[in-house]
């Protein structure tokens, strides 16, 4: 054991010093007490007595007051720390919960708004379709009317053309110096126009 050998060498060293003090210069010491006070056996009883008193006092102080108190403080601190950590965990869980709820609310709101937008779009589209159909009908009616008017006009024009042709034919016949009755001319023009 390293400690033991170290202790031995210490002991040897101290013994040599003691030897040197007390034996090497015995004549140079002024008084008898000038040696090592540590080796003055008359003071041993005194030192040992007061040492035991001091140790007993320290033991009493430590075991009755100080050590239980410090042990209690340390235990209390450990308890406080673990409680605080538990509370922090709980708060963290609550915060996570709250965040989840918020995300859910956000998602719901998004879905709701999307639904409303889709509905509005559908409604608008239906209205728009109805309006377009109505406009188409109106346009178709207007177009039919116009066509009818055009047909009338065309019919009118045909009649006018016939009248002009008959007149012109009559005038031509007259100019050529021939005479023909109106009815023959009309029949001839009609057959030409139709043909």
């Amino acid at each position: 054991m390293a400690n033991e050998t170290h202790g031995l060498s210490d002991a040897d060293g101290a013994a040599v010093v003691l030897h040197g003090e007390t034996v090497a210069h015995p004549t140079e010491l002024q008084t008898a007490e000038a040696g090592m006070p540590q080796l003055d056996f008359t003071t041993y009883a005194n030192q040992i007595f007061w040492l035991i008193v001091a140790l007993a006092a320290i033991y009493w102080i430590l075991s009755k007051i100080a050590l239980p108190r410090i042990a209690m403080i340390l235990a209390e601190r450990r308890g406080t720390i673990s409680n605080d950590i538990a509370a922090a965990e709980e708060l963290k869980a609550q915060a996570l919960e709250a965040e989840k709820a918020y995300q859910k609310a956000l998602a719901d709101a998004k879905a709701e708004s999307a639904r409303i937008v889709a509905e509005a779009k559908a409604e608008i589209k239906a209205e728009l379709d109805a309006a377009i159909a109505k406009a188409d009908d109106e346009i178709a009616a207007k177009a039919a009317e116009s066509e009818k008017a055009i047909a009338e006009i065309r019919a009118g024009a045909m009649e006018s053309v016939e009248a002009v042709a008959k007149d012109t034919a009559a005038a031509l016949v007259a100019a050529l110096g021939m005479s023909a009755d109106q009815a023959a001319i009309d029949a001839a023009v009609d057959t030409r126009v139709k043909g």
Binding site: I61, I65, L67
Partner: peptide, 24 residues
């Protein structure tokens, strides 16, 4: 004597007082 109040007594008393001051 063994019961004499010496400098040993004084400094051991101071030691006890310091221990009490720190720990209590």
């Amino acid at each position: 004597h063994w019961y004499t109040i010496t400098n040993v007594t004084l400094w051991m008393a101071i030691t006890v007082a310091c221990v009490a001051a720190l720990m209590v």
